[in-house]
Simulated scan of single mutants.
Amino acid sequence: MNAVYNGIDTIRDYRALLSGWRLGVISNPSGVDRGLTASIDILARDFRLTALFAPEHGIRGDRQAGQAIADDIDEALQVPVYSLHGQRKRIASAQLSAIDLLVYDLQDVGARFYTYLYTLSYAMEDCARQGVPLLVLDRFNPLGCAVVEGPLLRDQCRSFVGMYPMPVRYGLTVGEYARWINAEFGIGCELHVAPCRNYRRGMSFSACGLPWVSPSPNIPTPDSALLYIGTCIFEGTNVSEGRGTTRPFEQIGAPFIDARRLQERLARHELPGVIWRATHFIPTSGKYAGELCHGVQAHICDSEALRPFCAGMWLLHEIREQCRDFAWTAPEHADRLFGDDALRSGREDIPAILARAERESEDFRERSRPYWLYGD
């Protein structure tokens, strides 16, 4: 099988578009070529890079989730870095006036609530208003694009962790996502996409032949990216999602959980692709920092069979059933992550949620088909 090349790996094919222009770039350490050279360094070497724009976690990846980022100067390249994750999430008109073309190169994880998507969405709107073209250097989806999961986001839950009616696991590359929102929501951006080479929708991360570079501090492994689809919902609860440990989103726990009982109850569901192990951990930061937590770790034994959204729903259900101390500590955030209030309110039980999610996600897959760049 031919190795996959991301958009940055074919950047020389776009010299006609890039040469002679003042370039602004949205990127971070996940933006690298096959040889692990930073995209911003490649663009600065071969073209006229005049501005950098920092998403969540910063241009060099040195900020934690949610941490505000300030404007700065990149020491290595000596160009200004403008924050897109703090008090300002949009590109100011004056900043756009100083560039001729904006380049986007970030590794997404295939989850609706990953903020890089909406940094791109805002940038497309800003570019459209000011007539600045935007080039997306497309990247593989580490979850693959063949499977979609989860309910659609409702309008009342729109936020910077979800703006459009798409499933939790939406089955598109970031370039396809940009094509979809540009057309379906009338953004009107002059959009260019540098597609991946040799990529197919059903390819897993391991099949791509590419190195894993953590797209953000708490997605350290391909397993954490896949399980994130189902366990990110715990951000809205008093249960630790594993932040502050070496296995964020892979292990879930709290001081009040009976780990062995939870493991036994989950095993009864016989969910495909995952084995649950009772575990105990002490986070170094985040929820319960310095406290002993009890829970489970999800061990993926078949990534193609695993449906992480389904697994996450049953995990949440069993913790709620078992633990009287369980609480929704950030209910609005939980609703935004899930897409509506049906899970938190109990308005739908888990089988009903999963049945609706299957209908809605499959419908989305078909509706997004006109914007695909890659075949099955």
Score class of each variant (00 low, 15 high):
1 M>F: 06
3 A>Q: 10
4 V>N: 02
5 Y>A: 14
11 I>E: 10
12 R>I: 06
14 Y>S: 11
15 R>E: 15
15 R>M: 09
15 R>G: 15
22 R>D: 15
23 L>Q: 09
25 V>M: 15
25 V>E: 08
27 S>D: 10
29 P>Q: 11
30 S>M: 02
35 G>E: 03
39 S>R: 01
40 I>K: 02
42 I>N: 02
42 I>E: 02
44 A>N: 03
46 D>P: 09
52 L>N: 01
57 H>T: 09
68 A>E: 14
69 I>C: 00
71 D>W: 04
72 D>A: 10
73 I>C: 15
73 I>D: 15
77 L>D: 08
77 L>P: 11
78 Q>D: 15
81 V>L: 05
82 Y>H: 03
82 Y>R: 00
83 S>M: 01
83 S>F: 01
87 Q>R: 11
89 K>P: 03
92 A>R: 14
92 A>T: 06
94 A>G: 14
96 L>M: 02
98 A>G: 10
102 L>Q: 05
103 V>Y: 08
103 V>K: 06
111 A>L: 12
122 Y>R: 00
134 L>Y: 13
134 L>Q: 07
138 D>Q: 09
144 G>V: 04
144 G>E: 00
148 V>G: 01
149 E>S: 07
151 P>H: 01
151 P>A: 04
153 L>G: 03
156 Q>N: 05
156 Q>E: 09
158 R>K: 10
159 S>K: 02
167 P>T: 04
168 V>D: 01
169 R>P: 13
169 R>A: 00
172 L>Y: 07
175 G>N: 03
177 Y>P: 05
177 Y>K: 02
179 R>F: 11
179 R>T: 03
181 I>K: 06
182 N>G: 07
184 E>A: 03
184 E>T: 13
190 E>N: 12
192 H>E: 06
194 A>N: 10
199 Y>D: 07
202 G>A: 12
209 G>D: 01
210 L>I: 11
210 L>Q: 00
211 P>W: 00
214 S>F: 05
218 N>I: 08
220 P>S: 10
221 T>Y: 13
221 T>E: 13
222 P>C: 07
223 D>E: 15
226 L>E: 15
226 L>N: 12
227 L>C: 15
227 L>A: 12
228 Y>I: 10
233 I>K: 07
233 I>M: 14
242 G>V: 11
249 F>T: 13
249 F>E: 15
259 A>I: 08
262 L>F: 03
264 E>C: 07
265 R>F: 07
272 P>K: 04
273 G>R: 08
279 T>H: 10
280 H>D: 13
280 H>C: 15
281 F>W: 06
288 Y>R: 08
289 A>W: 09
292 L>Y: 04
302 D>R: 02
302 D>K: 01
306 L>V: 01
309 F>V: 01
309 F>W: 05
310 C>Q: 14
312 G>E: 02
312 G>C: 06
312 G>S: 06
317 H>F: 10
318 E>C: 12
318 E>A: 07
320 R>H: 09
324 R>K: 12
325 D>M: 06
326 F>V: 08
334 A>N: 12
338 F>W: 11
340 D>V: 07
344 R>D: 14
348 E>K: 06
349 D>E: 12
351 P>D: 12
356 R>K: 10
364 F>N: 05
368 S>E: 12
368 S>T: 09
375 G>N: 05
